[in-house]
Design a protein around this nucleic acid. Sequence first.
DNA 1: AATGAATGAGCCTTCATTCAT
DNA 2: GATGAATGAAGGCTCATTCAT
Lengths: 217, 217, 217, 217
Amino acid sequence: MVRIKAKVALVEPTRQQLLEAASAVFAERGFRAATVRQICQRANANVAAVNYHFGGKAGLYAEVLRHAHRCAEERHPNVSVSPKRLTPARELEIFVHAFLQRLFDEGRTAWLGKLMSREMVEPTAALDAVVEEQIQPNSRRLQDLLRRLLGPRSSAEQVRLCEMSVVSQCLFYHHCRPVISRLFPGFDFGPKALRRLAAHITRFSMGGLQSAKKGLG
Amino acid sequence: MVRIKAKVALVEPTRQQLLEAASAVFAERGFRAATVRQICQRANANVAAVNYHFGGKAGLYAEVLRHAHRCAEERHPNVSVSPKRLTPARELEIFVHAFLQRLFDEGRTAWLGKLMSREMVEPTAALDAVVEEQIQPNSRRLQDLLRRLLGPRSSAEQVRLCEMSVVSQCLFYHHCRPVISRLFPGFDFGPKALRRLAAHITRFSMGGLQSAKKGLG
Amino acid sequence: MVRIKAKVALVEPTRQQLLEAASAVFAERGFRAATVRQICQRANANVAAVNYHFGGKAGLYAEVLRHAHRCAEERHPNVSVSPKRLTPARELEIFVHAFLQRLFDEGRTAWLGKLMSREMVEPTAALDAVVEEQIQPNSRRLQDLLRRLLGPRSSAEQVRLCEMSVVSQCLFYHHCRPVISRLFPGFDFGPKALRRLAAHITRFSMGGLQSAKKGLG
Amino acid sequence: MVRIKAKVALVEPTRQQLLEAASAVFAERGFRAATVRQICQRANANVAAVNYHFGGKAGLYAEVLRHAHRCAEERHPNVSVSPKRLTPARELEIFVHAFLQRLFDEGRTAWLGKLMSREMVEPTAALDAVVEEQIQPNSRRLQDLLRRLLGPRSSAEQVRLCEMSVVSQCLFYHHCRPVISRLFPGFDFGPKALRRLAAHITRFSMGGLQSAKKGLG
DNA sequence: AATGAATGAGCCTTCATTCAT
DNA sequence: GATGAATGAAGGCTCATTCAT
């Protein structure tokens, strides 16, 4: 039993190492540019291991998306909170801030964001599952919050449009980073900046929601 | 001489055809996935032509970005208009609508959007020029408009943040299209839908700006 | 013990199942194209089982030839008949018909024919044993019959040549089936057709033997 | 022009060398076992040359079948001759002898026989073309001859069956060589032996045909 | 006796590039 | 100026086999 424990402790199971290595490489280089050999070398595994464990490069990639999601979830557990006495504005700010933190965290957490960005530009078969399992639930949660803010008379489309207006503002900083850093050198994404960003997005969106609400009448 | 004339008239110069074909292929498949052979075949040119005219695949790509920019500009000349008597809200709506139209136009115009999306995920050396020559001017123009809406007491950062809030809402529909079409099947981007979208973004942003303005006090 | 009994009763011993599966797969795909994994999967056995039980793919193949022979023998026991009062022509027809039936039987019996066809094109070490144990005895039997038909003055070579003329006509339909079915679409190998074939081969051969006999004088 | 001549003389065009090498290797090892690398090495060509010239291993193989046919044809031009005054028996013997010579010739001519043997065991897509372009015409020619021998009252099926009886006797020695050499050691296939074989097959077949003819009445 | 994981050699193919013409 | 042939590096994958359990 000691030996077993020792093994578990010392030698990471190949499959797991493969997953870790692949997440990093796929995030860095993209599906196409990443090579199986590269991944295996990084995972100290044999070239054939990928096929054995995941059935091929594509299978590995699909699993990586799930793994990256789990890693992000682990670090920034989904803000499913329904805290006791929060103003809706505060609730929105928490959502936005958590979203930004997820996007701009580094290390293993960053994988998901990078992978998803690539999926937007070049969707793979794996996207369907991700949307269904990961994005949809979050979308629902935000819609619930917005419906409360827009009032009971808001239409489904109104809610959808407002949802996208909120989400877009968060994603933008991540997705357009290369342009932002060229356009506004010095713009940073440290913890403080993220808080300021969240504050702005929240305030801007609260105003936007009010405007949209008025448009309903 | 007759033959030469005929040739000039009928057959586009190889270089130009190469550029056209490459723009389409790079936009569709991305730099890596696009193959030189594919491009040459589409351009009715020899495999070695790319190296001959552009020094290689990379050289061709750089030229393609410039070409795609020219094509987009040609079709939707920059909305530099400052029409006489428009309400600021209307002015904003025009800007937003023009932006969306550019993004969702099809054919040669679409190349630029697709190429830029890819540049966001995997910036190349060509990006610097594009930002400076293309994006910066537009950014300035929008900032001017927003400054007028936010009032003279608005800080540079306020303007910047609001600019990004506006722009992000436009880009989102283009950039996250794969998710949107999965999350909200039936969401379309025809001319009517773009007008509705522009209306929403404008109203939402006007509210946001008002909110941001108040925050200044 | 109950469990053991149950297991013995329900689950064919791995070795046997491996043999069955391998016979089918080798017959269908040939030695090279057949994969160990395919065989093991079909036998519900582990990938390593082949090496464990037979020392490798080659060892399994050698055993398969023997197994296929046993299976064929089981279904069409060798026509050792020396029936009381048959005309030699009838005796020859019985031999030919039995030969054809063996070749065109389906299921487990077909394995041998297919495997032997492959051995002809690419002989393996296993062929020697098959010739000695299986083919030689049949050859002797046919030679005896032909000697009776050719008369006592026939030379050993005459007998051999006539033997091959008879045998070749039977084998041809099996061996050249792909060409026959393309050259004469509709040519079938059902029980009736086999009887007609046997009749033709017998008549043709009886004529041939007579001709050969005359040539002796 | 001198230089061109020199080149033609010294450096065999890659494509041709590839074809030669491939014919040999495919005949020796079969389609599957043959490797592109092996072929290219033998042809002093780059590994990618096969893909460039033939579109892949399969394309090369298809071309090889045609090439092998041409080589065989070149050495033993088809006996389409209708020589002045030959007895039908003599005509048949010439056909049979030519057939045997083709099968047992060595060097480049042998390729076709080996390749066809493999096609019988494991037909590929290339077989259809071979049957149509190569086998069918020969089959027709033999049928014409046999029809003359069988008389005008012979049915199409009679002719077909007799054709197969004749052809099978020729092919047998080639196809079952591994067994023959084990069963009758010392059986050789030199020029003299081939002549004797042709004589036997012809005599045997003439008797067979007579028998078949009688069966018609 | 039997297994699941892991290995390494090898295969076919693709691709951007170069070279002689 | 332009081409068709040729190159070599690299990529994903398959397979029989081995090893520790």
